Simulated scan of single mutants.
Amino acid sequence: MELTWHGHSTWYVTLDGTDILIDPFFDNPKTDLSPADVDTPDFVLLTHGHADHIAHVGEFAEATVVATPELAGYVADEYGVEDTIGMNLGGTVEVGDAYVTMHRADHTNGFETDYQVSGDMPAGVVISDTKPTQVTDEESETFYHAGDTGLMTEMRDVIGPFLEPDAAALPIGDHFTMGPWQAAVATDWLDVDHVFPMHYDTFPPIEQDPEDFRREVKATGSDAEVHVLEGDEPFDLSETITV
């Protein structure tokens, strides 16, 4: 599984022959790319309807969008997306060579039309090459994109022990999401081997030094390796999995 961070909460995930783009928003200072520079993925996953997570979904209208039913319907109407898969919290769907499990995120939501309207429940997504079961699969590769969220005990009680992510991308920007210390606690609760800070430095209220996050993770006693990626820098998770 190859993971590429394009700044903010935008990730490109390649798993075997399947390409997945999460929360396309390229108007951020961490990427040098425009949507036109990005290969059209097979699937686009949306965690929630805020503009800084769906802004460029229309540039990938040939892909199949996976989101909650309400958000899938919204982007179909407003962005010209033709193919959608509506799923909901707790569900798992098969998308090409990957399985996507949707979990809640503690956040707010809204769709920016002529009138601000309330949206559906924000989410995080867990992407794996095997379908989640209660039987541990040491060879599986699993990536958790937490979306915009605050710290929540489901990370400790459900996502970590049962969905068993090897790596997690966590927001550290504070103000609208977790900050460095709460994201560090999340890292410890998830018991991941690798963690990536995201959703920071895009706007003045969420400017952060990711080294603060690294120090906070160390302070928890977690063994997770913190990877502060440059924008558009790939990370090969497959090379880190040991059986």
Results as ranks from 00 to 15, higher is better:
190 L>K: 12
161 P>L: 07
238 S>H: 05
75 V>T: 09
144 Y>C: 09
151 L>T: 10
167 A>G: 14
202 T>R: 07
222 S>Q: 00
207 E>G: 13
128 S>L: 00
5 W>K: 02
184 A>R: 10
52 D>E: 05
13 V>L: 15
240 T>G: 04
69 P>Q: 08
158 V>A: 06
16 D>R: 15
190 L>F: 10
228 V>P: 12
229 L>V: 05
12 Y>V: 11
74 Y>S: 07
58 G>C: 10
33 L>T: 06
224 A>R: 14
140 S>W: 00
121 M>A: 13
221 G>A: 04
67 A>T: 14
67 A>C: 06
63 A>T: 12
183 A>L: 07
233 E>K: 03
163 L>D: 06
132 P>T: 12
145 H>G: 10
42 D>G: 14
77 D>H: 02
243 V>N: 15
187 T>L: 10
108 T>E: 02
61 A>S: 15
184 A>N: 12
80 G>Q: 08
229 L>D: 09
66 V>Q: 04
24 P>Y: 00
119 G>P: 11
81 V>A: 12
57 V>N: 04
83 D>L: 00
154 E>W: 04
149 T>D: 05
19 D>P: 00
92 T>M: 04
151 L>R: 03
87 M>L: 12
168 A>V: 15
64 T>C: 11
190 L>H: 13
10 T>L: 07
31 T>H: 00
158 V>N: 04
149 T>Y: 01
21 L>Q: 06
151 L>Y: 14
171 P>S: 07
128 S>A: 02
131 K>L: 06
119 G>Y: 07
215 R>L: 13
110 G>C: 05
49 G>R: 13
163 L>E: 03
127 I>L: 09
69 P>S: 13
124 G>I: 10
75 V>H: 01
139 E>M: 08
168 A>P: 06
174 D>N: 13
50 H>L: 14
79 Y>V: 05
221 G>Q: 01
126 V>D: 03
191 D>W: 05
210 P>A: 10
48 H>Y: 11
235 F>D: 11
164 E>K: 12
153 T>L: 09
122 P>D: 09
105 A>V: 09
24 P>T: 07
22 I>K: 01
70 E>S: 06
152 M>G: 09
111 F>L: 15
13 V>E: 14
101 T>H: 02
65 V>D: 03
237 L>H: 13
44 V>Q: 05
151 L>N: 08
136 T>E: 12
136 T>N: 04
87 M>Q: 12
223 D>S: 14
17 G>R: 14
242 T>G: 09
104 R>G: 14
31 T>F: 00
177 T>W: 09
184 A>K: 01
169 A>G: 13
45 L>Q: 03
105 A>K: 02
226 V>R: 02
155 M>I: 03
80 G>D: 12
